[in-house]
Amino acid sequence: MLKLNTQKIINDIEIKFLKKDIPLLRIGDSVRIGVKIVEGNKERVQFYEGTIIAKKNSSVNTTITVRKVLQGIGIERVFLIHSPKVDSIQILSSAKVRRSKLYYLRNLRGKASRLKKSFK
């Protein structure tokens, strides 16, 4: 009797759904993410701009948390980067950070929340 390795089968199926054109995303990067939005029977792309404060890697379920401040209020959104709803990801700038999660930015206001730019 043939023994099936269930994890190998799952990985083989997930590989088909991974996107190939995703840039190397790092914590502290400022990104512009194009998200497909359906309004009625029309579909358009809306851009969301912000800083990556967290990243969770798990193959097809890889997510990034993007934070932006709009009119003094911080807005965070979690994106599943291999989702068909995510149209494009563009890196605008990079920052020099020493942590894997930038949750401390939630408590800072104004100029204190700026990150030091990295020139690569």
Rank of each mutant, 00 (worst) to 15 (best):
R44K: 14
V97I: 03
I22E: 08
T65N: 09
P84K: 04
I75R: 07
N61T: 06
I75F: 12
G74S: 14
K55Q: 15
I37T: 11
L108M: 14
V35S: 09
E43C: 03
K101R: 15
K116R: 10
R67S: 09
S94Y: 00
Q90I: 04
N107T: 08
Y103H: 13
V86L: 00
K42G: 03
I15R: 10
Y104E: 12
I81F: 04
T51G: 00
G72I: 04
G50F: 01
K117S: 12
M1I: 10
I52S: 05
L4M: 06
I91W: 03
L2V: 08
D12H: 08
D29S: 08
K111T: 02
K120T: 12
D29R: 02
K19L: 01
G72L: 08
V35Q: 12
L105N: 07
R106M: 04
K56L: 12
L2M: 14
V86N: 01
Y48A: 03
R99D: 09
N107G: 14
I81C: 07
I37N: 10
Q90E: 15
I52A: 08
M1Q: 11
I73Y: 05
F47N: 10
T65R: 11
S113C: 06
Q90L: 08
V35R: 09
S100Y: 08
K56R: 11
V69I: 11
Y104L: 07
H82K: 04
E49Y: 00
S118L: 13
L115K: 02
G40H: 01
H82V: 05
R26L: 15
V66H: 03
G72R: 03
F17C: 09
L2K: 13
Y103W: 10
T65D: 15
I52K: 01
L2S: 09
S118H: 04
V45C: 06
I73T: 13
Y104T: 02
F79D: 05
K116W: 02
R67C: 10
G28Q: 04
K85W: 05
E14W: 08
R99C: 02
V60W: 01
I13S: 13
T63E: 14
I81T: 04
V60C: 04
E43P: 00
K111V: 04
S30I: 14
A112T: 00
I91N: 01
A95D: 03
